[in-house]
Amino acid sequence: MNTELKLQALVDGELDAREVREVEALLAQDAQSAALMQELKWTKGALVGNDAELALPETREFFWSKIERTIAIEEKKAAATAPAERSWWLKLLYPATGLAAMVAVMFVVSGGRSTDGADSESVPEDVNAVSFRSESEQMSVVYVADENGNFSPVSEEVKNAPEADK
């Protein structure tokens, strides 16, 4: 802090005891600082209690009516947004509905089957056959048992085979 700002801080009572002693010692020796100090004190003194006194140039009724109307508008706005805040769970409804719809679509597209790779399923018992399907290989194979109980593939279906292979 430079000397001038220290002088000001002294006028404003913003210095600690040690700093006050230092600045007072300076003032005792330096006439220019003392003159500046005097000017700062005069300016401060001139302002004390001399804040401009002004009256609002509108009648009490008119000014209040504007405030009252604005408050009413703001409260209406707040009330309109308040129900959404109360039913916070509604905010979760939209993503949850979207997620459910997505799962349903995937279920329909996959025909209700698992899509995690190969799986097998049994056909009715009286046929004595087993089917195998591989999503990764995009193929299905049906094995039918002969009279000795030996299974052999009887049909093979390859989905989305490249054109050249057809």
Partner: peptide, 9 residues
């Protein structure tokens, strides 16, 4: 009504 002038000033 009491403080409007001061606030305006």
């Amino acid at each position: 009504a009491r403080h409007r002038d001061k606030i305006y000033a």
